[in-house]
Amino acid sequence: MRIGIVCPYSWDVPGGVQFHIRDLAEHLLRRGHQVSVLAPSDDDTPLPPYVVSAGRAVPVPYNGSVARLNFGFLSAARVRRWVHDGDFDVLHIHEPATPSLALLTCWAAQGPIVATFHTSNPRSRAMIAAYPILQPALEKISARIAVSEYARRTLVEHLGGDAVVIPNGVDVGFFARAEPEPAWQGGTIGFIGRIDEPRKGLPVLMRALPRILKELPGTRVLIAGRGDTDEALEHLPDEGLRDRVEFLGMVSDEDKARLLRSVDLYVAPNTGGESFGIILVEALSASAPVLASDLDAFAQVLDGGEAGALFPAGDADALAAEAVRLLGDRERLAELRARGERHVRRFDWDTVGADILAVYETVADGAASVAPDERTGLRARFGLARD
């Protein structure tokens, strides 16, 4: 198939959506499909051969974070040219409700369109207010995918319609095969994320650290991600404890996998705005025991607490108590590793990619090739039902 994928966020600043699109594109290419990805990027950004730049993006506050988006007349012209030149069998647009390349592509495209919704925001007044503008574009979508039940709920409540839930995928084997780094082993807690973005929860972990170190003084915290390290340490009041925190900066995919394979416990203290939790799946793939805040999306990924431990979001005392309990109980850690390794198989790209391809094939074949009595069931399955 000739598949066009639209990334709404800048390729220069990696995030969960960009990683998902990258891994999906490479999975499809390995299976012999022709894939082109349209994404914002700076002129000097090195791009994979399957990515086409739509020009520079600008930072826009969105869903508790700052998203780098591309929108405007020049962008619209680039979208139209890419759609025309690609002659795609199916277009896969991510986050079509954002003011980005995704929405521009919805307006410009004809033919089968699959849309994936990543956002979970139960109180988005902006999305509700924008619905009259979005509606003509959204009506062109042939099938809808949500990456989690929480993202599906946001879609239903704000934009109407429905979606099939297909989670983000991970190359489980890549993380499972990684070699641990000896320097990162031995009483270590891991954190990966943008350290100066409050909703990623690093301040909660820093507030929990004094109690953890009081009970387990040999513990270290390894932090990977971009951001102001001095600002992060402001949440750790005792300067004598700061030497137990090591900032690794941005790490490669290979070093991320090695880090997750090395730590005794991976902590995800996020406080909100998460629709899935790809880092949790990556940690489970690397056999890292996981302790995460009890956000709906995280609880879903961790099978309600069966594949990883949960604590009340934002509660530093609860995080500290659970971390101390887990780090002091090797049998419990081993149990979490074993459960996580079994649970994570459902997120492997062999499974997730096959589900996405089934959606592509359904919309590309077209309703004309489907018997009338089958059409209703297929449309309901893939969120195609019309009011």
Rank of each mutant, 00 (worst) to 15 (best):
D228K: 09
A126R: 12
D348G: 04
I356W: 06
T105M: 10
V170P: 12
F191T: 13
T219G: 13
L69W: 03
R80Q: 09
R332T: 13
E254N: 02
V37D: 12
V35Y: 12
P237S: 14
H158T: 15
F174Y: 15
V66L: 07
R330Y: 02
F88M: 12
I5Q: 13
V52P: 04
V245H: 11
A380G: 05
D162R: 05
A313Q: 12
W349D: 08
D373N: 01
T119I: 14
R199Q: 15
V172T: 15
L333W: 02
I3L: 14
D89C: 01
S36M: 04
D315G: 09
G161S: 10
H33G: 08
S287K: 04
W107L: 12
P14F: 01
L101C: 05
G305K: 06
L103H: 15
Q18V: 14
T219Q: 14
V51E: 09
A208N: 03
L213V: 00
R56K: 12
A320Q: 11
R337H: 09
L295H: 07
D85C: 00
L319R: 00
N63H: 02
L336Q: 11
G190K: 07
V267I: 13
P46V: 11
E239G: 09
V51T: 10
R152W: 05
P48G: 07
P14L: 05
F311S: 00
H94N: 07
P8Y: 01
G201N: 12
I93L: 14
R375E: 15
F298A: 02
L222W: 02
G111S: 12
M1C: 07
M206T: 04
I192R: 10
E157N: 14
N270Y: 08
I141T: 01
P237R: 10
L24N: 06
I128D: 12
C106V: 05
E234W: 10
A126H: 04
G169R: 09
I5H: 03
K140N: 12
V147M: 06
V172H: 04
W184V: 01
D12Q: 06
L280S: 03
E215T: 13
A57F: 03
R80Y: 03
P210H: 11
P61R: 11
A224R: 07
E95F: 04
D85Q: 13
R56W: 04
D243N: 15
C106Y: 00
L216S: 10
V263F: 04
Q34M: 07
P217K: 13
E331G: 14
P40I: 03
A208R: 08
R123E: 11
A292G: 07
S148H: 04
I195G: 13
L241F: 06
I356P: 06
L291D: 06
T98E: 10
T351Y: 03
H92F: 01
D317I: 00
V156R: 15
V352C: 07
D243T: 10
F191K: 13
G328L: 10
L259D: 08
G383P: 08
L24A: 07
R177Y: 10
S120F: 15
K214H: 14
G366I: 07
S10Y: 01
L357P: 01
G55D: 09
R78K: 15
A208W: 05
W82S: 05
P122T: 01
P40C: 01
R22A: 13
G111K: 11
F88Y: 09
Y150I: 13
I3W: 05
I3Y: 07
T98F: 06
D365M: 00
V6D: 02
A358G: 11
F311Q: 02
L47T: 02
P61Y: 10
E215S: 15
G366P: 06
S120V: 14
G377D: 11
